[in-house]
Design a protein around this nucleic acid. Structure first.
Lengths: 161, 161
DNA sequence: GCTGGAAGTGTTATGAAATAACATTACATC
DNA sequence: GATGTAATGTTATTTCATAACACTTCCAGC
């Protein structure tokens, strides 16, 4: 989204150094125990997402992929993103065409996002009220397998200024 | 979304003839009283959306725009869509990159969608539980201006077969 | 009725996002 | 070490959306 203000509210701080390494190792372990493989490109994309301060566009990942500054081919990154989403390590934010590392750590889960249209800060939250919607849909015979909840608006910091 | 089954569940029947004309006139009246203009291209795009049986891709609108079969230029349709969304006559479905006419008639409102990944049927519903989410966000100082809720899954018909 | 500004449209071109298709390589397991 | 599956590499293309600028329409105020 377009940043209309100058606040650089870093809602989710990017991981660095040992914290980053630890998060990656955790992801690796979880893949192992799930019979999945956190291969090099997948690990690299997750690393980029975890290190970022907010949602990242696919083509920014593509550009940043190579440690030497060399870009990846689009399918490389899109495949990795698909895997990371499937495993619950990352989420796609539909209304931004962007991707974030999952910050709630739990297993595959429904996610919701608060997206400040002013500073761009994006916070992942538990989707309050989702159970109500799923139940309501269920009464109509509709089974929800995947739920997208994205709330745009203004964060506290941007409202204050 | 890809239709994986053969059900052609028409969740929202496309309007035709006098029903369509009436819906368009109603939209025109509401624009008048709101100081807005339902110009020719806007009216045409709304007509296409109302006549469709489900979500429509922007480039399908572009292709179908000319009554003589001639395509429109992309900005023509995208501008019209932007207007229709702003006025609450249409919604964009982020997870499909597609657009639908609003079926709930009310003024600008939050919308939610149940999208069957099998037959493609898409139903607009009142976003049950949205109040909970908005309230929850509000407690954190976040003011929601726009809410996207899209539930993917299986509709009753597709589950049955 | 002229005029000036805002809103809307037409048009060309381009940018951004995502995937199709097919060749090749890694990896487990038998 | 043969075999099948999963994952990756690579080229090309398709799909989705907007930038930029010229032109027209509409209407409020003179």
């Amino acid at each position: 989204m377009d940043h209309r203000c100058e606040h650089d509210a870093a809602a989710s701080v990017g991981l660095k150094g040992s914290a980053l390494a630890q998060a990656l190792d955790q992801a690796g372990s979880r893949c192992d125990s799930d019979g999945q493989r956190l291969t090099a490109p997948r690990r690299r994309v997750l690393e980029l997402l975890l290190g970022a301060e907010g949602p990242v566009k696919a083509y920014d990942l593509i550009a940043a992929f190579g440690v030497d500054g060399e870009a990846a081919k689009p399918p490389t990154v899109y495949r990795a993103l698909e895997f990371l989403e499937r495993q619950g390590f990352a989420h796609r934010i539909e209304s931004l065409n962007a991707y974030v590392a999952c910050r709630l750590g739990a297993d595959t889960h429904a996610a919701a996002f608060l997206i400040c249209d002013c500073c761009g800060a994006t916070r992942e939250i538990e989707p309050a009220g989702a159970d109500v919607l799923v139940a309501s849909a269920g009464r109509d015979g509709f089974v929800v397998t995947n739920l997208t909840v994205e709330a745009h608006g203004l964060c506290a910091a941007c409202r204050a200024s």
